[in-house]
Design a protein around this nucleic acid. Structure first.
Lengths: 158, 158
DNA sequence: GCACCTGGTTTAATATTGCAACCACACAAA
DNA sequence: TTTGTGTGGTTGCAATATTAAACCAGGTGC
């Protein structure tokens, strides 16, 4: 493989996100963490993934500042993994993934849960993208602009 | 490896999305397609990925109804790959990924482009999640509810 | 007819994943 | 204090996926 291509230094922010959290397990680990899971064993039980790869993923997420380790909260001498603000910031991505499934999945009847507003218990609205002056935007209403002060001769991609 | 674990029949909609488009290249292919790229060679040139894996990914995306093939538009006898509505529905996911990078990346100065509203040329707002009665929701304001008519004894995950 | 472009497939090397077995430490009971 | 059990890993090995590079077939251009 030579090396799985890394997008760490790509100039596309989508590629950069994918490089950080764009693999199946990382995203699911963060999903569980958002629901309060914090212990190694609990991640392993709920996700059913191999312990070695869980260990690698947790370390990578900690290195990237998405999770942080803390010295236990239930009194035991073990540690727990907690989300940082950066980690909690993944929430909209997970919501977008969920809503895409809900809208386009071939077998929506297999989907077991729906995301609701905690206060009223009613399903949430679809994520919406607005312009600064409040117009609802679709993909076609947007464009990419090079950032100011971008180094020349770097290819602007997306 | 025995087999890379598939989430195709997982009951979590996030896992199901990831199973469909949760790998680096698929997401980036869709990103390019949203910008109008439609030809094999152009995907290959812009993404710089090996042609064999591009072929595999394109086939998978077509099988899943995210892309469809059409018999050329520039007159040549070749075919092109176009997004279906399901494919265009990925847009919010890409926006969410982009915004996460913009907000939390360690080296934001390396990000080359910003997403703007085409009409005014101004940066778009952050994606926002609302309740049905219009309140802005964060991760903590939401909960998961089992779908009605869900088969019993299936574990509700997320 | 001949070169070359497009859109792939094949091959072989290397990386990643996954399972299972092992291990070290904490804690608890006997 | 030995024995047992749960937690949180690490190690080894086999299977699979990714990759670059070489190859190839049909269309197109000249």
């Amino acid at each position: 493989m030579v090396k799985r291509t890394s997008f760490e230094h790509d100039d596309c922010p989508i590629a950069r996100s994918l490089d950080a959290i764009g693999d199946w397990w990382s995203m699911l680990i963060i999903r569980e963490a958002l629901f309060g899971v914090s212990r190694f064993g609990e991640f392993q039980k709920r996700l059913g993934l191999a312990k070695n790869i869980l260990a690698v993923r947790l370390r990578a997420l900690v290195d990237q500042g998405i999770l942080k380790t803390a010295p236990a909260s239930d009194g035991s001498a073990y540690q727990e993994y907690l989300l940082t603000p950066k980690g909690r910031g993944v929430f909209p991505i997970l919501v977008a993934l969920r809503q895409w499934s809900e809208e386009f999945d071939e077998h929506p009847e297999e989907i077991a849960s729906i995301l609701v507003d905690k206060e009223k218990g009613r399903p949430v609205r679809k994520l919406e993208l607005y312009s600064q002056d409040g117009r609802l935007l679709g993909a076609g209403d947007t464009a990419l602009k090079p950032r100011t002060a971008v180094k020349q001769n770097r290819r602007v991609r997306a």
